[in-house]
Amino acid sequence: MSLLELFLIAVAVSMDAFAVAICKGLSMQKVTLKKALTVGLYFGIFQAGMPLIGYFLGVQFRDIITSIDHWFAFFLLAFIGVNMIKESRANEGCPSGDLGFKNMVILAFSTSIDALAVGITLAFLKVDVIHSVTFIGTVTFILSMVGVRIGNIFGVKYKSKAELVGGIVLVCIGLKILLEHTGVLDLYL
C-alpha cells in the first residue's frame, strides 16, 4: 500500500471524528489549545487503537481467506463508505461541548468503529501495522484539532460534506483493491 493510499484511508476514516470535532467547536464559546488537544487526543488515540485491534483480529483469519481477501477488503471498505455516505445525508444534531471523560470516550469509540474494520482490511494487505495505525491516529489527531477550530468559526456547514467525501474515498479504495487483485487494472495499464 502506498503512502498516498494510506493517507487517503486515514483521512477517510477520520471524517466521522472530524465532523464531531466540528460540532464540538460549534458548541464551545471559546476554543483553547487545551480543548482542541483534548478532542484531538481522544479521537486520534481511538482511531489508532481500533485498527490495531482489527489488524490482530484479521491476522487470525488471514491464512484461511487469503484467496478472497481482495473481495473481503472491497466489501468491507465499500460497506463503511456507503454507511458514511448515508450518514452524510442524515440531518443529525451535534453533540454538546462537554469534554468529560465519559462523553469523549463514547464519542471517540463510536467514531472509530469504522477504523476497526479498516484494521481487518490492513491485515489482508500485509502492511506495516505500527506505521499504519500511527499514521491514521496522527492524521485524525490533526484533523480533529482543526475540526474544533473550524466548527467554532464556521459551524456545521461542512459536517455532511466531510462525511460524504470520506465515504466516497473508502468506496474508491475498496474498488481499486478489488480491481488490482482481479487483474482488471492490468488490462488497462
Rank of each mutant, 00 (worst) to 15 (best):
M1I: 13
M1N: 08
L3P: 04
L3D: 03
L4T: 01
L4D: 04
L6F: 00
L6S: 02
F7Y: 11
L8V: 06
I9P: 09
A10R: 08
V13W: 11
A17E: 01
A21D: 00
I22K: 00
K24S: 02
L26A: 06
S27T: 09
M28Q: 10
M28T: 03
K30I: 11
T32Y: 04
T32R: 05
L33C: 06
K34N: 12
A36T: 02
A36K: 05
T38P: 07
V39N: 02
G40V: 03
G40I: 03
Y42P: 04
F43S: 00
I45N: 01
Q47P: 05
G49E: 01
M50R: 05
I53C: 13
I53H: 10
G54C: 08
L57A: 14
L57D: 09
G58C: 08
G58L: 09
V59A: 12
V59K: 15
F61I: 12
R62P: 04
D63I: 11
I64L: 14
I65R: 12
T66Q: 15
T66H: 14
S67A: 11
S67I: 11
S67Q: 13
I68K: 14
F72I: 13
A73T: 07
F74M: 07
L76V: 09
L77F: 07
F79K: 06
G81Q: 07
M84A: 09
R89L: 14
E92I: 00
G93I: 02
C94R: 04
C94D: 01
C94V: 01
S96P: 05
S96I: 01
D98M: 08
N103F: 11
N103I: 09
N103P: 07
M104K: 03
I106Y: 11
A108S: 10
S110P: 08
T111D: 03
A115W: 09
A115R: 06
L116E: 01
L116S: 05
G119F: 06
G119W: 11
T121L: 14
L122D: 02
K126R: 14
K126F: 12
V127G: 09
V127Y: 10
V129Q: 08
H131V: 13
V133P: 05
I136D: 00
I136K: 05
G137V: 00
T138Q: 11
V139I: 13
V139C: 07
T140L: 04
G147E: 00
V148H: 01
R149L: 14
I153G: 00
F154I: 08
G155A: 08
G155P: 03
V156W: 03
Y158I: 13
Y158K: 12
Y158H: 07
Y158V: 13
K161W: 04
L164A: 11
L164D: 04
G166N: 05
G166D: 00
V169A: 02
V169M: 15
L170H: 04
V171W: 13
G174H: 11
K176P: 02
I177E: 02
L178V: 04
L179R: 01
E180T: 12
E180R: 15
H181K: 15
G183S: 11
V184N: 07
L185R: 07
L185V: 07
L185T: 06
L189Y: 15
